[in-house]
Each structure stands twice: as C-alpha cells, then as structure tokens.
Simulated assay, not measured.
Amino acid sequence: MLGQPVVVENKPGAGGTMPAQLLQSAPPDGYTVAQIPLGVFRLPYTTKINWDPVKDISYVLNVTGYAFGLVVPADSALRSWTHFVGWAKANPGMLSYGSTGTMTSPHLTMELIAQKLGLQLLHVPYKGSADLMQAILGGQIMAAADSTGFAPQVAAGKLRVLNTWGAERLAKFPDAPTLKELGLDMVQNSPFGIGAPKGTPPAVIKRLHDAFKQAMETESYVSALARYDMVPMYMNSAAYLRFAQDTFAKEKALVEKLGLMRQP
C-alpha cells in the first residue's frame, strides 16, 4: 500500500510508551511511526519528561482498542469475583495481582476498582504480557490483569477468567461477567493508534493515514484482531487528535484521584 518495506521493531517496557518517546528524536519524514497506547497520555503526570504527548506527536489515526480481563490460575481458591473481593477484604494488602507495568491501563483500572470497593491489593508490575503469563502460571502472583492474550491459557484449562472490562461479555468467555454486571460502572478498552514525529508534513500524514485505513479494511486485519477479541476502532487524524486532547485531561483527573501524581 505504501510501496515500501515495513520493519516492525518491538520496544517492550515502560508500559508500552517507549515507541512514543522514540518519536521525539526521529526525523519528521514519515519513515518512523509508533503505536500510541493510552499510557502515553499519563506520562507527564507520573514521570518527568521534556515533551508533550499532545503537542509533540502528529496523530495519524486510531486503529483499535484492547479487550481486558482479570484471570486467576484454574486451581485457585478464588473461584469467582465474589471470592476475589471477599479474600481481598479479609486479607488487606495480601492479594497479589500482576499487570503489564506501572501506570498501564490494567494497573490503573485495578487500582480504581480497589478504591471503589475499599480493597488493598498488592500490585506486581511486569515488562509485558509474556513475563506476566509466566509469573501467574508459575504461581508467583494470585491474579493477572491483562488484555485477552491470555486466551490460549484459558482454553488449555490453566487459567480462569473472573471478569472482562468491555461494554458487553466477550464471545470467547461467555461465562465471565463484565465490570458493569458486577456493579462497577466502568468500561476499559484503551484505544490506541498510530503517531508520527511532530512536524511531519500534512501530505505525509495523509498518505500514512490512507494506507493504514486501507489496511484496516482488509479481512486479514479484522481476522487478526478477532484472535485477541478486538475490533477495528477507526478515528481519522482530526478525530484522533481530539481524542488525544480529551484523554490527556481525563488521565490527569484519574491519576490525581488515585493519588499517583508525580511530585514536582
């Protein structure tokens, strides 16, 4: 679609925000783009950085969002969300759960749930989903909050899903209730898209947008997303920039509410 080879370079750690940080030193020529996870909009509130997530990224388009959930080992005594909450209340600070990193959407969502329910949980951050799955399967933590890449382990009978975080139940886990069904008025799907360096010419942004948009409409893309319980979630460049501006303000309010704001 672009007539160019595309090299995908994975940059784990930092809650998935490393690619956005690398954009700050990349030339604005359209040859470097990055996935922009929701955690990017929290960075200035939790970490000292010298760039602005809204002003210093050229937003190309949003492509999808994650499906999240909470899992426990299949042989865990925490058979349901009711058991999870009951055990956490009876054992403050003892129920350990892992996430894909500090200040990621799974981490903050779990902390918001804990705050709403008066729970004290023990958060254990990992570098990514692979490390997180190794930890829970190895018995190092009691639960894991992550996107539904854990599905193969559930299908293999090694993990059990306690809840999912979308607006509706997931077809792959029909017995797992949503947070809303459990009395928590919350939906978390963490939209993400593609960004380019600040100053990338509008014509280049349009060409990138059109190519990614065309790719989003292919059956192979839709099928690939479906494997992870995800669906296309398109926003054009202008809409994605507005989303970035709105989300930047909302994330500040969330970080403040949880008492996690970085001290100056």
Rank of each mutant, 00 (worst) to 15 (best):
P264Y: 04
I194C: 09
V8H: 11
F243I: 02
T17V: 06
T17D: 02
L112P: 00
V63D: 08
Y126H: 07
V187E: 05
E217I: 01
E168S: 07
G93Y: 09
L117V: 00
A224C: 07
T164E: 09
T32V: 15
V204P: 07
Y234N: 00
G138M: 01
P197E: 07
Y45I: 00
V161Y: 07
I36N: 10
F212R: 04
N91Y: 13
I141W: 05
N62M: 08
V204T: 15
L61N: 13
A249D: 10
Y240P: 04
V72K: 08
T164R: 06
N10K: 13
A239N: 00
L170C: 03
Q214F: 07
L260K: 11
S223I: 01
S190Y: 05
K198P: 01
G118P: 01
F192D: 01
A74L: 14
E168Q: 11
D146G: 06
D185Y: 13
Q153V: 00
Q153Y: 15
Q134E: 15
K127W: 08
L2N: 09
Y234A: 04
S80V: 06
P37R: 09
T102I: 11
L61I: 11
L38T: 08
M233G: 00
A143I: 03
R207G: 12
Q35S: 15
D185N: 15
L61H: 05
W81D: 06
P106N: 06
T100C: 04
H107W: 11
L179K: 02
R79A: 13
P44M: 01
L137M: 10
G101Q: 06
P19C: 11
A156Y: 00
H83L: 05
A226D: 12
P197K: 05
L159C: 09
P202I: 10
H209M: 08
L182R: 08
G65S: 11
Q21K: 14
E217D: 12
P73N: 14
A20Y: 11
M133K: 04
G86C: 07
L159H: 03
K250W: 05
T17P: 02
L170Y: 13
D146A: 15
E181W: 06
F243Q: 04
V63Y: 12
P5R: 08
F212N: 01
A215K: 11
A238T: 15
V54T: 04
A226R: 14
A167Q: 12
N163S: 14
P92H: 15
V161L: 10
K252L: 15
D56P: 00
L78F: 03
V7S: 14
P27R: 08
A135P: 03
M110K: 02
V124K: 14
R169P: 01
P174K: 08
P28H: 01
W87H: 10
L61D: 07
A143F: 04
K48R: 15
P174A: 09
L38N: 09
L70F: 02
P191L: 09
I57E: 09
R160S: 13
Q24Y: 09
F212T: 01
P37Q: 06
A77I: 02
